[in-house]
């Protein structure tokens, strides 16, 4: 297929236009089966469209500037019937069938029974991610999706409040999360790596900050990660972390957040059991380090206005450091 050629073309184009293109959230660099099919379709349509567009421009130019004889050819209903009816009918028919066939290809993943299932719930403005075991176990995480490469994974998309839309452009097209419904999206990551996704349906307030990361891993790495994720939070090591854990308990953080094994079982905010091991904080808004934790705790309403966490300015510097150290240690 011409896809590799086109992709390198896309790469050049991107580099040219994007100067240091991160590409983590770009549909031009597909890393999933569905996104790859769509990318091919995109280039086919783009090239065909460009040819048609140039044709129209040339025809207009000729109609304006051409010699009498050429212009006379263009000046009749026969030309309209050919260029305006016959040609579009042919082109559109081919394109429509091609579109249908690409859609049908989506059925392959959907048929895969017994694969990994992950429930993703859109919340204002973060993502609740729950890995559903075949035996009914549920392991909750947030704002980060881990996938084994090469295996079809079914996402069960729901929402806790308004309509959101799950979009990880490198993997697949988007699918909305609608109150009262479960939409199922099948993804197959084709190569390991980290990509980024974002809510694509305007959901009010901090819609711009509702992102997530997708980590595609070789199946064995994924299994390791999963084993760690399923375990309880590690116990605090050292004095600072221990003080942080106590602050976490005293300040009532557990009313909203869960830290499995530490007695915190709130269901309102993101699960923090292994928050220290994630690649980012606050739905891919901040990097994941102690400093960012401290900033988030005190200043979250400026970092991500209208988010549902109250600002916690009640801690002094030392307390904040302890608390951040503790949270960062939750690997």
């Amino acid at each position: 297929m011409t896809a590799p050629v086109l992709r390198s073309l896309a790469g050049t184009l991107c580099l040219l236009a994007l100067a240091g293109c991160a590409g983590e959230q770009s549909a031009f660099f597909p890393r999933g089966a569905e996104a790859e099919r769509i990318e091919t379709l995109f280039w086919v349509m783009t090239i065909a469209g460009s040819v048609i567009f140039i044709g129209v421009v040339v025809a207009t130019g000729v109609a304006m500037l051409g010699g009498q004889r050429v212009r006379r050819v263009l000046a009749g209903e026969r030309f309209i019937a050919g260029a305006g009816i016959a040609f579009p009918v042919a082109a559109l028919s081919i394109l429509l069938v091609a579109g249908f066939l690409v859609m049908r290809a989506g059925a392959a993943g959907e048929d895969a029974e017994g694969g990994l299932r992950i429930a993703v719930s859109g919340e204002r403005w973060w993502w609740r991610v729950t890995y559903l075991g075949e035996d009914g176990t549920q392991i909750e995480s947030a704002n980060e999706l881990h996938l084994p490469v090469g295996e079809p994974v079914t996402l069960e998309l729901t929402t806790a409040d308004v309509i959101h839309s799950f979009w990880a452009p490198q993997l697949a097209g988007k699918l909305d999360m609608i109150p009262g419904r479960i939409n199922r999206l099948t993804l197959t990551a084709t190569e390991p790596g980290v990509s980024r996704g974002q809510c694509a349906e305007y959901c009010g307030g901090a819609h711009a900050f509702m992102s997530f990361q997708v980590v595609a891993q070789p199946p064995e790495d994924f299994a390791d990660w999963m084993a760690n994720e399923a375990a309880d939070a590690p116990a605090p090591q050292g004095e600072s972390e221990a003080r942080g854990a106590e602050l976490f308990r005293q300040a009532g953080c557990g009313a909203c957040h869960t830290v499995r094994g530490a007695g915190a079982n709130g269901r309102i905010g993101p699960d923090l059991t292994h928050v220290g091991s994630r690649r980012s904080l606050a739905a891919a808004t901040l990097p994941n380090d102690a400093e960012a934790f401290a900033r988030w705790i005190t200043d979250n309403q400026h970092i991500k206005p209208e988010n549902q966490m109250p600002p916690y300015t009640i801690f002094d510097e030392a307390e904040l450091e302890d608390l951040s150290n503790y949270l960062e240690s939750l690997k």
Partner: peptide
Amino acid sequence: GIPEADVPACVTCHLGANAQ
């Protein structure tokens, strides 16, 4: 609390959990 409305349980902070 009321988890669906993002209201945490009062008991976590008040009713003696923290002197502040």
